[in-house]
Each structure stands twice: as structure tokens, then as C-alpha cells.
Amino acid sequence: MTVQDWFEKRKEAQIQRRALEARVEIEANPDLWTKCVHCNAQLLKKDIEENSMVCPVCDYHFRVSARTRIEQLFDEGSFEEYFGDIKPTDPLDFVDTESYKDRIAKAQEKTGLNDAVITGIGTIEGHKTAFAVMDFDFMGGSMGSVVGEKVTRIIEKAIELRLPVIAVTSSGGARMQESALSLMQMAKTSCACARLDEAGLLYVNVITDPTFGGVTASFGTLGDIIVAEQGARVGFAGRRVIEQTIRQKLPSDFQTAEYLMKYGQVDIVSPRKELRDTLANILSMHEQGVQ
């Protein structure tokens, strides 16, 4: 055995011992640990949380809840929720493999939210703005009557108070369980965007992973400025539907934020950590009022 071999062996033994220690630690406190879904690294949950829910190893952006997103973007204590009491109903008595009523109850319990969006007013580095932030964990961030109503109301509130609006989207699309009523939320929110337009107020979209279907085809892409979060997947039709229709495999970067930027659909692709500064900067340049 050469000296080099000896060092190699010792190094390997050390690595193995550390891995074993880590395993013991994980087994002792499994709740503290998680695996990155992207790079497979064993990570302390705390380390991801302290890193804005971004993997410290590979920069993968984990999905965040609406509440976390608001904490990340808005000045501490500046945020006031509006229209939080609006709750969904089951107008169609919809039942698939599970009833809509049960799905609502489960989603409410899981997220602590009444539905898939939080609306309110807050400040970002001192710049006051109205906002709607969606939560993907509530039935895939789907837009039914409640999402449509809250988004419309916060836009109307912004017009009344002459504030800009920021919409952070994360949605699989319109909520099937409310059928045509969900479809009409696309019209309703877009009509509100028309009035926001005419009021000369700034509207910014922040598109996060994933944003599809009825939200992409309504208030989700009607902003004066569109920012996509790094790594977000965005589109109208889902990847699977397109693959089935055209019977060919799609490129791996298809419908990513970066792909959208390449095809002229978004203004800015921002890493999560820069999002707050990006938004503050944009807001700061639209405060002279409009002719």
C-alpha cells in the first residue's frame, strides 16, 4: 500500500462515516430532512427554507405556498388581506371519483385557505401595491368562482385606490368542477383587466411554476410587464395533451420560463431571490402617474 492509497482509503472511510452519521441523524429526526426532487441531495429542510425554498445544491426552485410567497415578497407587517372570507360552493353538485365538496374540504384543511388565492394590499420595499397570490396546493391552484371573484375584486379595489396590481400565478387552469362558471371567470377577470388598463394603472404578472390553461388564457398573461420565475413551466395546453395531439416528443425545455423568453412572451426571467428587488424596481418606475 502506497501512502497515496492509504490517504485514499482513509478519505473514503471518512466519507462513509459521515454518510452513516448523516443517516443516523436523519433516522433520529426524519422530519428535519428532505431530498431535493431535482438533484437528489439530502438536505436539511431548514437549509432550503432559509434559502427561499431553493435547493442550495442545484438551485432548483421548490413550489411555495401563497403565504410563504407573500412573506418573501412583501415588507414585514405591511400586508393586509382582503376578501379572505369568500368561500367556494358546489353549484353543480359535481361528483367524479370524489365529490367536489370533499375535495374542497380536504384542500381547505391541507392549506388553511378558503380557496386557491390570497388577495390584499401590501408594500414591496416601500412601494404600495395590490396583489393576488395563488396557491397551487389548493386543488392545483385551479380557478373557480372564488378565485375569479377575488382577483376581480382586488383589481376593482386597486382602481378605486389608484394602486398597481401584482398577480403571482400558479395554476393548472380553470376548475373543472364548476364547469362553465369557471370558464366565465376567465372573462370576468379579463374584463377587470380591461378597466385596469383604462384606468392607466400598472399591472405586473409574476408567473410561477406551473401556470397553465385558463389562468394563462386570462388575467395570468395580461400584465403590462410579465415576469416569469426561473424554472417555471408555463403554457396554455399541457405537455401531455400536446404530445398526444401531435404524436411526437417535445423538447425538454418546452414551456419553460427560459423558452418563453426566447419566444418573446415574457419580459424578465428572475431567480426567486431577485424577485422582490425586480418588482420593487419596476414599481418604482411607474409612480409618476399616467397621462
Binding site: 388564457a217 388575467f219 395570468g220 398573461t221 395580461l222 403554457g235 396554455f236 400536446i242 418546452f254
Partner: peptide
């Protein structure tokens, strides 16, 4: 609306959204 590669490249969602908004006006 057609689900295809070109449709996505050319912003199918935004094209529909824009019509919804502009029809209101």
C-alpha cells in the same frame, strides 16, 4: 384552441386572454 408546438411558441394563452380583455372595451 389548438394544442401544438407553434401554438405555444406564439402564445395561445395570451392571444385568447388579450381577446377577452379587448372585447370588453
Amino acid at each position: 384552441a389548438y394544442p401544438g408546438i407553434s401554438a405555444e411558441k406564439h402564445a395561445q394563452g395570451a392571444a385568447i386572454a388579450y381577446n377577452l380583455k379587448e372585447m370588453q372595451k
